[in-house]
């Protein structure tokens, strides 16, 4: 599958990545090359093969319903780009 300029723009938008318009052809070429590699998968018929999501055949472990975390807001917000009154600030959200 070969990707066009419009495909790159659509994917970049979905992934919220700003791509310099000048770089779009490069991305289109590289990603098309990767997809070509990936499509070698089609050499094998996988009809009826169980998909494998995890390497180990384990099941989900569960924890007890206990509060184990204390308030560390100050520490966590020291590394935040912009906070005020304990809130993380972002450009206005329009619903």
């Amino acid at each position: 599958m070969s990707l066009e300029k419009a495909d790159i723009e659509k994917i970049a938008h979905l992934a919220r990545l700003e791509i310099d318009p000048g770089d779009v052809p490069d991305y289109a070429r590289n990603l098309s090359g990767i997809l070509e590699l990936v499509e070698q998968m089609n050499q094998v018929d996988t009809e009826g093969v169980q998909p494998m999501a995890h390497p180990l055949r384990m099941t989900q472990r569960m924890r007890a319903d206990e509060v184990t975390e204390s308030n560390q807001r100050d520490k966590f917000q020291q590394i935040a780009p912009q906070v005020e009154a304990g809130l993380y600030l972002v450009p206005k959200v329009i619903e």
Partner: peptide
């Protein structure tokens, strides 16, 4: 529940902003 679905932070209503948001929740 007392704690969150995937972390040990409290679920109590009405706390000061971001005081019940642990590393996992963030």
């Amino acid at each position: 529940t007392k704690s969150k679905i995937f972390s040990g932070a409290a679920t109590a209503y009405g706390a000061e902003p971001n005081t019940q948001a642990c590393a996992v929740d963030l």
